[in-house]
């Protein structure tokens, strides 16, 4: 645990230095950090608890719209709006999980797509609330302690704080009772029940935490975009991107989702130059490579080897 927090500390220092070193490459860094945070949050449910969601864009949209509507219609400061969005996301996850966690197999995954799609249709059609298909614009934002929330550097720091928060939470979870409950439920629900674990409760907690954190990142994304369109925010492909980032990087590991974000969003920019809008092609190709050759994901395979090596060394010594 100390080792992981040391690595995280180094990452924070590198992050703080970044805007000074590459002041012209902030946008891509913000994307990487937001995706790292989303994928890490997704992974609490998708990796640690083993419940594959393809609807997390719904929570991104929820966070972003709460901030935008809160600001434009109710004059609500973004931090309060984000807190409300997190509560709403957790409540939605609770209701959603109650319905679907009793079922196994592909039903949960299918239902996540359906719920996110319904949210998208609400965002498009309820123009009085959401600005409809044209979207909603954040025209003014408060200036807490004189900080300009329209500044890219500020967006960068918010995204950095978000991704660091999610990783820190996962580091703590990984060593806690909850973390072991999650893994047990993922590996074998019967065996988990024999250990006194209620699988539905554990999965619900994971879903609620995952949803709330993604909504927080969504709120930051909303401030970053300042112009929200339902087609982008609730998009099925955003859900797919978040899930595949975590899976390619390594599900159920502390660093896998962040490594996935670095690799995919970083190279995604290169791909965008080569293939214009077809940049999701790389996700399709990489997920096939991972499924066929690296089933635990990039970091998952690395970690697996490290565990084996450590054990081999301990038996020799």
């Amino acid at each position: 645990m100390i080792r992981h927090f040391t690595v995280l500390g180094i990452a924070v220092l590198a992050g703080l230095a970044y805007p000074h070193l590459f002041p012209n490459a902030l946008t891509i860094a913000i994307s990487v950090l937001l995706f790292a945070g989303w994928a890490t949050s997704w992974d609490i449910l998708g990796g640690w608890a083993g419940q594959l969601s393809l609807g997390h864009a719904g929570f991104v949209g929820l966070g972003a719209y709460f901030v935008a509507i809160g600001q434009s219609d109710y004059g609500l400061a973004p931090w309060w709006a984000m807190m409300l969005a997190m509560i709403a996301a957790a409540a939605l996850a609770f209701a959603w999980g109650r319905i679907t966690f009793g079922l196994r197999g592909p039903y949960f995954t299918l239902s996540t797509i359906a719920v996110a799609e319904i949210l998208r249709m609400i965002a498009i059609n309820e123009g009085w609330l959401t600005g409809g298909a044209t979207g909603v614009f954040i025209a003014t934002l408060p200036e807490p302690f004189g900080i300009d929330l329209f500044s890219r550097v500020v967006h960068f720091h918010m995204a950095l704080a978000f991704s660091v928060l999610t990783v820190a939470i996962v580091i703590i979870i990984s060593q806690s009772r909850f973390g072991y409950q999650l893994r047990a439920v993922r590996e074998d629900e019967s065996s988990a029940m024999a250990a006194g674990i209620n699988p539905v409760v554990v999965k619900l907690k994971a879903f609620m935490l995952s949803a709330a954190l993604v909504a927080l990142g969504g709120g930051i994304y909303g401030i970053f975009l300042s112009f929200l369109e339902p087609h982008i925010l609730f998009y099925l492909f955003l859900s797919i991107q978040i899930a595949l980032t975590a899976i390619i990087g390594g599900r159920g590991t502390i660093w896998g989702p962040s490594i996935g974000a670095l690799l995919l969003i970083g190279s995604g920019e290169i791909f965008r130059a080569a293939f214009a809008q077809a940049n999701l092609l790389i996700y399709g190709l990489l997920i096939l490579v991972v499924i066929l050759f690296l089933p635990r994901g990039i970091f998952g395979e690395i970690q697996r080897r490290a565990v084996r090596r450590r054990y081999a060394r301990s038996t020799q010594g």
């Binding site: 797919i240 092609l281 399709g284 997920i287 096939l288 499924i291």
Partner: peptide, 20 residues
Amino acid sequence: ESAMLATLGISLIIGNGLLL
């Protein structure tokens, strides 16, 4: 789940291949 993810990858490849 692996097969499901593989078909998701195939989906992205076909969709983006058609786009190109």
